[in-house]
């Protein structure tokens, strides 16, 4: 059961003159929590955007569950394959309720067309409503279900974004700085939460994070990027000892 879930080879992304990601290899195996770290502007989010089809990579290949993802595959198709993500800047459907946010994620797997949906011919709507309620219950968000997403406090917005990603039934979840803006207490709760959902939903996790406590605590392996290039990879213990990483990142950005 340790097959490769995500396998990135020679990934390169250039924006005009800027090479945001440079010849990156990265592999995530089933059930792992892998962290992608590096200073601001190192190209971490760009990696996510290439994997999820937001950007078309300049070069390189991405395979998911052993199958290469064809160039030009749109983000919605990649989500359908089983890759979910959250965003560095929270992107909820702000005028919609907590419940509706989760329901949107269920839409792609509903067996329906516009007529059967409008006239409620099949029981699909009821089915996904029950599923969404169950998910909200598991996540402890049920009491907030009719709250507008934009009314939630910051931490709960982050939580809802993850819950919404889980609602797409992913195999792999990409978390972009989920602890951003959280205090140490919230951060350690988040660490526990991520390990918990990995077990519960049989997830594989790739996480971008600046909070080093969290990264060192939960990661099985770590990749370190600097100026788009991979400068180190290994277990948390190995990374903490690595002089290049300390020089480029850990030494200066420990409290970032």
């Amino acid at each position: 059961m340790s097959g490769s879930v995500l396998n990135i080879k020679n990934l390169t992304m250039r924006f005009g003159g800027v090479t945001a990601v440079d010849n990156l290899p990265l592999e995530v195996r089933r059930g792992e929590i892998v962290a992608l770290i590096g200073p601001n502007g190192a190209g971490k989010t760009t990696v996510f955007n290439c994997v999820t089809g937001v950007y078309e990579a300049t070069d390189g290949s991405v395979s998911f569950l052993g199958k290469p993802i064809a160039k030009g595959t749109t983000p919605d198709k990649i989500t359908k394959l089983g890759i979910a993500r959250t965003f560095q800047n929270i992107r909820l459907f702000s005028t919609m309720t907590v419940f509706e946010n989760v329901l949107v994620a269920k839409h792609m797997r509903m067996r329906q067309n516009i007529f059967s949906a409008a006239f409620r011919i099949r029981k699909e709507e009821q089915r996904v409503r029950d599923e969404a309620l169950a998910l909200l219950e598991e996540q402890g968000l049920l009491h907030l279900k009719d709250e507008a997403a934009s009314n939630l406090p910051y931490g709960l917005q982050r939580h809802l974004e993850i819950a919404r990603a889980l609602a797409t039934d992913p195999e792999l979840i990409l978390l972009d700085e989920p602890a951003a803006g959280m205090n140490p207490q919230e951060t350690s709760e988040l660490a526990e939460f991520i390990q918990q959902i990995r077990g519960k939903y049989k997830l594989t996790v790739l996480i971008i994070e600046h909070h080093m406590d969290l990264v060192m605590q939960i990661s099985d392996r770590i990749y370190v990027l600097d100026f788009g290039k991979l400068i180190a990879t290994g277990t948390p213990a190995e990374i903490q000892e690595n002089q290049r990483v300390i020089d480029a990142y850990l030494g200066v950005a420990d409290d970032a």
């Binding site: 919605d76 359908k80 459907f93 005028t95 919609m96 919404r164 797409t168």
Partner: peptide, 14 residues
């Protein structure tokens, strides 16, 4: 409505 609120997020929801 999801598309109206945030296209990128809607796309990421499949």
């Amino acid at each position: 409505r999801a598309i109206r609120d945030d296209e990128r997020a809607a796309e990421a929801m499949g």
